[in-house]
Nucleic acid binder design. Structure first.
Lengths: 208, 208
DNA sequence: CATTTTTTTGTCCATCGGTACAATACTTTT
DNA sequence: AAAAGTATTGTACCGATGGACAAAAAAATG
């Protein structure tokens, strides 16, 4: 596994050499071509088009951690949403960087503790309120379905594939299709896309 | 370091033995007495009083990961809020379990990327709405796209098929696919289903 | 116990969706 | 003028999707 380092300020490379062995610093183009799956790419927000770069690098199979001199909630969210697995201060200590690398290369997600604490402290209530708020407009649709069908419908409304639903409910893919056919008929929709749109508000509340 | 495993369904123990060496399955009381600092306790939500157990186990110095058959935002936040360091599907593959263990025992938090992004987005939206007008969150996604891509994305967000989009924009189906591939890459989604979910609020605004 | 509903699974097949290779023409930027 | 980005279309391939026939076991209802 190799570390890549994209920034406009080469002076930072020294910090990374202290923390890691295989450090390859260079421009975005080089990294995009050279980065292999499971490599770790550290991308600075001082690079102007970093939002475009993240999905591209992720598409190569590499893991992306976004670096910022001025950590910001909005920016962190954006980074994670685009596929980054971490968001950390550019000048974080080498020990921290090692920790981040360990976590993100193992499918984990790294965000600052302040952000996490803020989220845990603040959003729990708002999520709950949301869930109680509007979950009745669509219950009329869901009430048309059987217990099992409801489970399938909600899973599909999250964007899950038949295979994923099958794994989740521990049934065969064929059975998922059977339930789906029944659901389509009952709710008078032609496919899973229309189903999502019909249940969209519900899906937004649940999500997983 | 030892793994502890609390559930009401003993049939799952086999899964854990595949993933880990030192597995100690048993009742809550035994674990509470036997668990040592830095041990890892896997706690299933099928245990009726799991919310009460989490703080108690954490107080012993052990790391807690909560297992759920039906992952859910509220439940995940509740678990983390009570002191759990991870929240994962009960039937996750052994490799995943190993990674979860690695992350949480290294001061990391495991919640899954999509969930985290969604949670952050949820709390963030409410914070932002005070300062700014409405949902610029999605126009921000759309601003990453070109003019033509935006048109395709919005059409697909209505649930249109490729053929329908082609008719609508008077281009071939092949071209629609080309634009879609670009869209998927830029917005870091795997297919049109996830795209719909990402642009759902926008679609809602348009149809209303 | 008989009937109905629900849940489950099977094979076959046509269509859709998405990617992997392309290539060409037009526009914008440098 | 050269380079880069955008829009367009082509063929081929493969996995996902949904319907058309099924059938059978389990659960609920009478």
């Amino acid at each position: 596994m190799k570390h890549w380092f994209i920034t406009v300020d080469g002076s930072l490379k020294g910090r990374w050499k202290k923390a890691f062995e295989n450090v390859g610093s260079s421009g975005p183009e080089t990294v995009l071509q050279s980065a292999k799956p499971n490599d770790l790419v550290w991308l600075s927000t001082t690079v102007k088009n970093w939002p475009q770069l993240v999905p591209l690098i992720v598409a190569e199979g590499a893991v992306v951690v976004v670096l910022s001199y001025a950590p910001d909630d909005r920016e962190a969210l954006k980074a994670l949403d685009l596929g980054a697995r971490g968001y950390v201060h550019t000048l974080a200590a080498p020990e921290v960087l090692k920790q981040v690398a360990l976590v993100v290369t193992n499918q984990g997600v790294w965000v600052g503790q302040e952000l996490l604490a803020k989220v845990l402290g603040g959003s729990f209530k708002t999520l709950q309120q949301r869930n109680q708020g509007g979950s009745f407009q669509n219950s009329e649709y869901l009430s048309l379905l059987t217990e099992r069908e409801r489970g399938v419908a909600l899973a599909v409304a999250q964007g899950a594939t038949n295979k994923e639903v099958a794994r989740l409910l521990d049934i065969t893919e064929r059975t998922v299709k059977a339930h789906l056919s029944a659901i389509f008929k009952k709710l008078a929709v032609r496919d899973r896309l229309q189903l999502i749109l019909k249940l969209a508000p519900v899906a937004e509340q649940m999500s997983s």
